[in-house]
C-alpha cells in the first residue's frame, strides 16, 4: 500500500499546482485581451524616433508624451532640442512633412563670480541645494544675484553637462549641453538662460545693484559703466538699469568689445567648447 501512496501524493500536488498555474495563466491571457489599451501605432513609431531621455525640453513630461502631442494636438515637430537635426529628419520622414529646424541653443550661467573674485559675507551651514538656501536668504554670498554654487542646476541636468567648480561656480559645458532648459527652470536666482550656440560675446553678470555696491562684493560684476554699450553703439548690448545686457537677437561682430570692460565681465567664448572650467 505504502509505495502507492507516495506517487499519489506527488500526483495530487503536481495536479493542484499545475491547475492553479493554468488558471492564473488563463486569467492573464483574458486580462491582456479584454483590458488592453489601444493606442495609435504612430505614437509608438514617433516615440522610437525620439531620443528617449525624457528631458522635458519640448515642454512635455517625456518623449512618449511629446509623440502623442504631435499626433493628437498637432504640436510642431521641431521642439526636440537634444535630438537636433537627426530626430527632426526622422520625424519628418515618418510623417511625410517638411519642417524648419530651430537654432541650436545651449545653457549659459550668467555669473562669473567664483570664490576667488566674489565676496562671501557669511558661511552657509545647511542643505546643499540652491533652492533651499535661497529660501532662507541665500548662502552667504555677498552678491544677492550671484551663483551660489550649491549645484541645483547640475543635479537636474539629464546629461551631466553642468560642473560646479572647486571655486563654487556653476559652469555649463556647451559641447555636452542638449539644450533641454531644465537648469533654466531650476536656478532660484534665474542666472541660467539659453543662448544661441553660435554666439561668442557674453556678459556674465545679473547684478542689478549700482556700480559702487557691485564693486564692494565682486571683482567681475557689471558696474554699469556703459563703455561696452558705447563701443558697439547700442547694437547688440543695451543697458537694463545699471546692468549691461547682450541682446542675442542682434549679432555682434567685433569681439574686441570685451576689452572695453574694466571688470572683465564680458567674455569671449566659443559656444561649442568649454573654457575656464577646471
Amino acid at each position: 500500500m505504502l509505495p502507492l501512496i507516495v506517487p499519489l501524493a506527488i500526483i495530487t500536488s503536481t495536479a493542484v499546482i499545475g491547475l492553479t498555474g493554468l488558471g492564473c495563466g488563463l486569467l492573464l491571457a483574458m486580462a491582456a485581451r479584454f483590458l488592453a489599451v489601444r493606442e495609435d501605432e504612430r505614437i509608438e513609431a514617433l516615440t522610437e524616433c525620439l531620443p528617449g531621455i525624457n528631458c522635458g525640453a519640448c515642454g512635455l513630461a517625456g518623449c512618449r508624451d511629446y509623440a502623442r502631442a504631435i499626433i493628437e494636438d498637432d504640436m510642431p515637430v521641431n521642439l526636440c532640442k537634444p535630438g537636433g537635426d537627426d530626430t527632426l529628419k526622422a520625424l519628418c520622414g515618418y510623417l511625410g512633412i517638411v519642417a524648419q529646424a530651430g537654432v541650436r541653443e545651449v545653457a549659459l550661467v550668467f555669473c562669473g563670480g567664483h570664490n576667488g573674485v566674489a565676496k562671501r559675507q557669511a558661511t552657509y551651514n545647511g542643505i546643499a541645494d540652491c533652492v533651499a538656501a535661497e529660501r532662507i536668504g541665500g548662502d552667504g554670498k555677498a552678491c544677492p544675484f550671484g551663483c551660489m554654487g550649491l549645484g541645483s542646476c547640475a543635479r537636474v541636468c539629464p546629461v551631466n553637462a553642468i560642473e560646479i567648480t572647486a571655486q563654487r561656480l556653476a559652469i555649463v559645458h556647451p559641447e555636452l549641453c542638449i539644450g533641454c532648459g531644465a537648469c533654466v527652470k531650476t536656478c532660484p536666482r534665474s542666472l541660467i538662460a539659453m543662448v544661441p550656440e553660435s554666439r561668442t560675446i557674453h556678459i556674465l553678470c545679473r547684478s542689478k545693484d549700482r556700480g559702487p555696491v557691485v564693486r564692494k562684493y565682486c571683482e567681475v560684476g557689471c558696474i554699469g559703466c556703459n563703455r561696452c554699450v558705447k563701443a558697439v553703439d547700442k547694437k547688440g548690448i543695451t543697458m537694463d538699469g545699471a546692468l549691461a545686457v547682450v541682446d542675442y537677437a542682434v549679432p555682434i561682430e567685433d569681439v574686441s568689445v570685451a576689452e572695453t570692460c574694466p571688470q572683465s565681465t564680458i567674455v569671449v567664448r566659443d559656444g561649442r567648447r568649454t573654457e575656464g572650467a577646471s
Binding site: 562671501r120 559675507q121 558661511t123 552657509y124 551651514n125 545647511g126 532662507i136
Partner: peptide, 8 residues
C-alpha cells in the same frame, strides 16, 4: 573682521 555663519 567677522565671518558669520548662517543657517536655518
Amino acid at each position: 573682521n567677522i565671518n558669520l555663519a548662517i543657517s536655518s
